[in-house]
Amino acid sequence: MNESVKSVLLVGVGGQGIIRASDILSAVMMKAGFDVKKSEVHGMAQRGGCVSSHVRFGRKVYSPMAKEGDVDILVSFEKLETLRYLKSLKTCGKVIINNEEVYPPSVNLGEAEYPSDAIDFIKKYFKDVKVVDAIAMALRSGDKRMVNTVILGVLSSYLDIKTSVWENVLEESFPPKILKGNIEAFRLGRGV
């Protein structure tokens, strides 16, 4: 096992900006001097399905995906999806959860229940669980779509990388028109 490699798994639902967030995280890690690999599945994800994106960094990274039970931080953009990918975490893994519910079709049709006690369940098995109301913070920064930047801000406080590196990459990632809001969203998240 390649012990020096760290793995972050970002999960959620198509349209939540997960791929963008993992691109930014990867760029930050590269700028910080790590070898980086990231992997996700495109295609059908645009149409409301599950999205998951692995980001791995270290001195030398081979596999772009971590094996099950080897993820250091699970960053979940949606409550139900956290449960789906919980098995991927190390026993001492950390969880960041955006407190948002997006109903899958079977729940919309009234055929299945959306799990009501997800957070309690997760806390029973993992010590380090942070639940954030990222939508509210994104709205405070001016746009609901900045949820992913807020969550990156939260994640950044788990990784030992200077704020300036993050903000440099944000500057390269967003057009000037929406940069200010995104920086604000990032700082709100980092302050959580």
Partner: peptide, 8 residues
């Protein structure tokens, strides 16, 4: 868990 297939 309720599955989340892609949708139109």
């Amino acid at each position: 868990l309720p599955s989340r297939p892609p949708n139109l």
